[in-house]
């Protein structure tokens, strides 16, 4: 079995199984564990609505923090948008998603995918440089760095495979798939789970604050 056969076969299969099971486990494991009802009367009659509004309102830092978080906010936005477009926008990824779900949509030209992938990787480096430069602000853990590496590897190997840089194409493709498999398997059990949690955590915070009448 070649490295590519291993990557396209058992490796990605196992990673997807872990990812799907992990997502279901973490989501239900937390969501079923609801807090008890707050018996106090809400300060704000529209508390629930305002709470849900927080999901969107917290997508941008509060005004007083605009300047200090500008670099982080802008680069993080660039990274997330570029990454999302690469994940769902280039033909090989759509082919992979279609093989799993049956869904497909028009793709962007490859050169655009390469450009966005490069932007995503560059912004990821910009983020890690800032994290390394300002340890007091980020108070990083090992998990932060591991997550960075696990996200950076598929981007790096994907770009290298497309550009035919480094090892032979099929080997780079295999490394790209294997690094993606690592990402899939690691995602549910790490901070990368924020892909789901950001909705629930913001909503929960918003609901709690609104119930107490905090201006949000």
């Amino acid at each position: 079995m070649s490295l590519l056969e291993f990557a396209r076969g058992p490796a990605i299969h196992a990673a997807l199984i872990i990812m799907v099971a992990g997502f279901a486990l973490r989501l239900l494991g937390v969501l079923v564990l609801t807090r008890g009802a707050d018996m106090s009367r809400p300060r704000d009659a529209f508390g629930n609505f305002k709470g849900y509004r927080t999901v969107f309102s917290r997508a941008w830092p509060a005004g007083e923090f605009t300047t200090t978080t500008r670099y982080q906010t802008v680069v993080a936005y660039v990274f997330h948008i570029a990454l999302l477009l690469v994940i769902v926008g280039i033909v090989p990824h759509i082919e992979f998603i279609q093989s799993l779900t049956g869904l497909s949509w028009p793709a962007m030209p490859n050169f655009l995918g390469v450009a966005l992938g490069t932007i995503a990787l560059a912004s990821l480096f910009a983020l890690i440089f800032r994290r390394l430069a300002k340890p007091a602000i980020y108070n990083s853990t090992v998990g932060d760095y591991v997550a960075w590496v696990v996200v950076a590897l598929p981007l790096l190997t994907g770009l290298m495979a497309f550009a035919h840089v480094g090892l032979r194409y099929e080997t780079m493709l295999a490394l790209h798939i294997l690094s993606s498999a690592l990402l899939f398997a690691y995602m549910p059990f790490s901070k990368l789970m924020h892909a789901f949690w950001f909705i629930f955590s913001r909503a929960q915070s918003g609901l709690a604050y609104a119930h107490k009448g905090v201006r949000i």
Binding site: H13, A21, G22, A24, R26, L27, L28, G29, L100
Partner: peptide, 17 residues
């Protein structure tokens, strides 16, 4: 197997909670 994994994961998560 992915579908089975989702069901198993959901069952385990819900049970634990």
């Amino acid at each position: 197997k992915l579908g089975a994994a989702a069901i198993a994961g959901a069952a385990a998560g819900a049970s634990a909670a």
